[in-house]
Structure formats: C-alpha cells, structure tokens
Design a protein around this nucleic acid. Structure first.
Lengths: 202, 202
DNA sequence: CCGGGAATTGACCGCCCAGTCAGTCTCCTG
DNA sequence: CAGGAGACTGACTGGGCGGTCAATTCCCGG
C-alpha cells in the first residue's frame, strides 16, 4: 500500500511535469524564449502560474529541462539506429533518417532547437547544453573516424567535418520542418547525396 | 555656404549615427538582442540614452538598422567578387572567400548574424530581413543554375541546394570566427572542397 | 462526516528597462 | 554680444513579467 500510494503520487507528479514541459515546448516554439511568458505556459498546461514553480525553479530551468528532455530522447533514438547499422554509409543514412523522423514527430522541439541553440552556444556560456551538443557531435565523429579508418571515406579533419555535416543536416531539417509546402519528397535522400557525393560533376 | 553648412550638419549626423550603430553591433554581439540595453549601447557610443532615440525610433529599429547595414555591405562585396569570376568553380570560391574576408573583419556583425538570424527568420515574421536574406541566397542560386546549365555541376534542385550550401558556409564561418584557436589554416579551402567533392571516396 | 496535510491557486510585489521630455548646453547669426 | 534654434542630456515613468506566498481547495484516512 505504501508503495502503491507513493507510486500514485509519483504518477501524478510526473503527469503534471510532462504536461507543463509539453506546454513549455509549445509556447517557446511559438514565441521564442524571451517573448514566452510563464503565464502563457501555465494557461496552456491548464494550471496556474504558481504550479509551474512547484515543478521548476525558474523560467530558465523550465526551458533547459524541456530542451534536455528532447535532446536526450533524440540522442537515444539516433544512437539505437546507429548501433543497428554496419557500414559507414548506412550509419550516415541512419543518422540522417533518425533525426528526420524524430523531428518530424516533434516539430515544436525542432523550432526551439533550431532558433535558440546558436544563442545558447555562443552568448550564454551554458556548459550543460554544450555537453548534450557534444554527445551528438561525437556520434557523428565516430562514424567519420570509422569510415576513414576502414577506407570508405576520404581523409579529413574529423571534428570540423563532423560539425559541417551536422549543420548541413540541421539546415535540411529546417527546410523540411519549418516550411511545410511543396518540398522534394525525400529531403533526407537529397541531403545524404549531397554529403556523400558533393555537387561536382562525376 | 548653405551647401557647406548643410553638409557639415549631415556629416555630424552621419558620424553620430555610425558611432551608435557600431556600439549597437558591439553590445548586441556581446549580450544578444534581449540582454542588451539601450543604456549600454549609449554609454559605449559615448552619448546619452536620449540621443540614441534622436537617431533611431526604437531598440528594434536600431537592431534592424545595424543588421541591414552589415548585410548590404556584405552583399556588395560578395557581388563584386562574383562579377569578377568567370567559371562556376571560381564563383563558388569567390563567394566563400568574400564571406570569410568580410566576416573576419566584422566579427561582431557575424555574431549577431549567426545567433539572431534563426529567430528573426522563424519566430518574428520580418519581411524586410527575409528580403535581404533572399538576395544572398539568389546570388548562390544563380551560380548553381549557371553551373548546371554549363555542365560544370550535376543537376540538383537549385533552391534547396543553394540553402544547403549557404548554411554550410555559415557553419564553417561559425567555426572559424567564433572559436579563435588552432583551426586548420585554410578553412575556406576545406569548406570549398567539401562542397565541391563531397566526402565519399574517389 | 470530520480533520488535517498536501496540492493548487492567483493576486500581489518589485525589478528592470524601453521610451519620454523638460531642462541644459552649444554654437551660429545678425 | 545677445538671443534663439536645435542638439544633447539623464532623471523619470509606465508597463510587463518573473517569482512569491497567504488563502483556498482537494483528498484521504479514520
């Protein structure tokens, strides 16, 4: 009974927390971090402003929590897909596809990720998010390093190339997620080809 | 005398205006748009807060003016370099080199351009800046279109590829401008090669 | 049905800063 | 040198919003 009672309370808390996080993501995506207000988020979550502060310490804390959750889920999915891929080529495809799938299902999150990240990375020294970012980049770095070692990829400076590839995918995602209409049907294939072959003839 | 008097006044006004714009760029680059205050900008420009409002209508107006000026200067330089380049290959090189040179000389501007642009492009519908952005992208689109027509480049969807290339260069610039140290000596060559050849073997 | 502890509420506080404007200074003109 | 036009100043205001907490509601065990 003690266990059941505790778990019930926990479930409720987790429900509230999730509810607020979802609302936060939505409002942050819609307005951007600064223009979003706690009141808007609370209203959207169906609670009062004070309740938000029972679950999160501050606006910033809430924002970081919503980002963290999204990034961790993304990272888990991508890593799982990578592990199931044998060759560097299929790993790169898996990396791209996993991101496209995840962000297609989490558009609000992509908006935040896309619009707020440069700020966080440069203006505010935010070591915690730097780490989350690093982990993503390192997945790609190891794909590149493996590919070079096995001879599938030409030699190149791994860290800076990884960032180029990373941002290229980000750019393709932005085109795909932020402008709905009339895109080419398989943007992930396009960006893969671009990365894999480049634009020069033959 | 009337002309000289008038021109003197104009010169003074332009001097103040430039002074304030420079200070604005510096402070916006340092703190980001929202954290920057008009007082900081005024102090940095060596004037009082009220003076700023003699030359610009609002914080937003000042911000947009500083962006506009920078983008127009960039655009002029890039376009001039492009005009001097005969082949698609040299045009792409010119496009990359011009941007690297311009932003190396205007790091504050790059910071703003890099960190604030995604916000402006997505969260706030800012048609004016969209246009400035469009002009840049179109330069690149015509390079690609020419290259495809002349057979130097493989066929590809021009607008979306142009944006990929554009953002790829932006990413390389970010690595080069925002982290001083120990980069590869010729990042513009690296990014050019990446674009031109891609990463696949042979 | 009662009592009390926990969860929730939302009116309120205080800070911060964009934007204002009455007053000061500067410098030209007659 | 007087006077006044206009550039410049900076103390002040008003509003908006992050964060708080006393009051209220909810819920459950006895």
């Amino acid at each position: 009974m003690a266990v059941a009672g505790k778990s019930k309370k926990d479930v409720l808390q987790e429900f509230r927390s999730t509810e607020i996080l979802e609302a936060a993501r939505h409002v942050f995506a819609l307005r951007g971090y600064h223009a979003a207000t706690i009141d808007q988020i609370a209203t959207h979550a169906g609670v009062a402003k004070g309740t938000v502060y029972l679950y999160f310490d501050s606006k910033r804390d809430l924002f970081l929590a919503s980002l963290r959750e999204g990034v961790l889920a993304l990272h888990a999915e991508v890593a799982a897909q990578l592990r199931a891929s044998p060759t560097p080529k299929s790993q790169l495809q898996a990396f791209i596809n996993a991101r496209f799938h995840y962000f297609s299902r989490n558009r609000d999150f992509f908006r935040i990720y896309y619009t707020e990240f440069p700020q966080l990375a440069t203006v505010t020294g935010q070591p915690e998010l730097q780490d989350l970012y690093e982990q993503q980049a390192q997945l790609l770095e190891s794909v590149l390093a493996d590919g070079i070692r096995s001879g599938h990829l030409r030699s190149c400076p791994v860290p800076s190339t990884a960032r180029l590839v990373y941002d290229l995918i980000r750019s393709a995602l932005a085109q795909h997620i932020l402008n709905e209409p009339a895109d080419n049907p398989h943007p992930e294939a396009t960006v893969f080809n671009f990365i894999w072959k480049g634009i020069s003839q033959s």
